[in-house]
Design a protein around this nucleic acid. Structure first.
Lengths: 186, 186
DNA sequence: CGTGACGTTCAAAACTATTTGAAGGTTCTA
DNA sequence: TAGAACCTTCAAATAGTTTTGAACGTCACG
């Protein structure tokens, strides 16, 4: 019976790994608990209930609930139906690449896109200054800023392409990427 | 004379761009002001003093001082000596790639490295359990966790290689990597 | 020296983000 | 329909981060 997965304490390994992942993920801009909860699920042979997680990680019921729903929204945790159980149970998405590419695609992408738009607007506005201003020093300033913002824009576009590429690579198989990278080494 | 760079207000363009960069950088795990200060310097034709920045961005003297010293520590801003000026002046590193690769190399790299070490330790510890435990269900659990943590480890290593590749590519030109990635598309 | 112009530091204040837990909903069972 | 088990929500509490500005240090100049 699945429910008997002990409501108990984590193995030291589990505690350590979930802590590391928690930090990594926090550094990545998510909440630490998201990383911890995901990891505990990822390392569990069976789906776990909210209560199991609450005990394993010493969280309040509210925290578990909110964390799980955020993780579900990111599609990195799934709710599974278990025969004869009243509670909901959860499992971790095991396809790590799929998980990562979803995050890249939704979160990073939108940041980068927003930046690109702003840079383009700034360039337009500088163009207008260049055309209408008669003050030469202002023109010079506008020129310089135009050039520099163009650099930023190119960088942002490059970042965007990199993300796209990672995401589409990820859908298939990361191996080619790995091979390429290995070939790159000095 | 350089000192006459007006202690004034930013152009709307400058304000907008520095704000966007500030957000992007914040999202990236740095302080927003670091992005803003860097951007104002980056868009300025001449080096600026701490006071100029204070006025431009409405920051306290302490904030400017701390932000500049952090930016210097990251090597993305340089202190320049100006003839006959008492104040210190600052310019932005203009080599964007150099800047980014430094960040990747120092900050991200150390995160990833730390994670790799922990995963390896966890694997060792699971190996010990597999060898010494007589309880078969514990063994099974250890096996599963070993396999999963191995996945995490591989991912972390892949991330590390990706960072290395970006950094070493960056020194020259990022295009090959991007081309490769784009070529990967289905 | 003494003074003023800077730069830096750091404790306290302001602000953000996260977590808690009690209240309230929903669903299932008897 | 009442009650138990569970999940969710959200206002309040807590924790964490960033910013402020006054105090202090340094240096150049008279």
């Amino acid at each position: 019976m699945v429910g008997q997965v002990k409501t108990g304490v984590l193995w030291p390994t589990e505690a350590a790994v979930s802590d590391v992942v928690g930090r990594l993920i926090e550094f990545w801009g998510f909440k630490r608990n998201m990383g911890r909860v995901w990891t505990v699920l990822y390392l569990s042979p069976d789906p776990l209930s909210a209560e199991d997680l609450r005990h394993a990680l010493q969280l309040s019921s509210g925290a578990v609930s909110m964390t799980l729903s955020e993780l579900s929204r990111w599609g990195v945790v799934r709710r599974v139906w278990i025969q004869g159980e009243r509670k909901d149970f959860y499992t971790a998405e095991v396809q790590l690449w799929r998980m990562i590419s979803r995050v890249f695609n939704e979160r990073e992408k939108s940041e980068v896109t927003a930046a690109i738009v702003s840079f383009e607007e700034a360039l337009d506005s500088l163009d207008r200054i260049r055309k209408t201003s008669s003050d030469p020093s202002m023109r010079a300033r506008a020129d310089l800023q135009h050039a520099r913002i163009t650099q930023l824009l190119e960088l942002a576009r490059l970042g965007g392409r990199l993300l796209d590429a990672l995401v589409s690579t990820a859908k298939v198989d990361a191996e080619p990427l790995v091979q390429f990278l290995l070939g790159q080494r000095p």
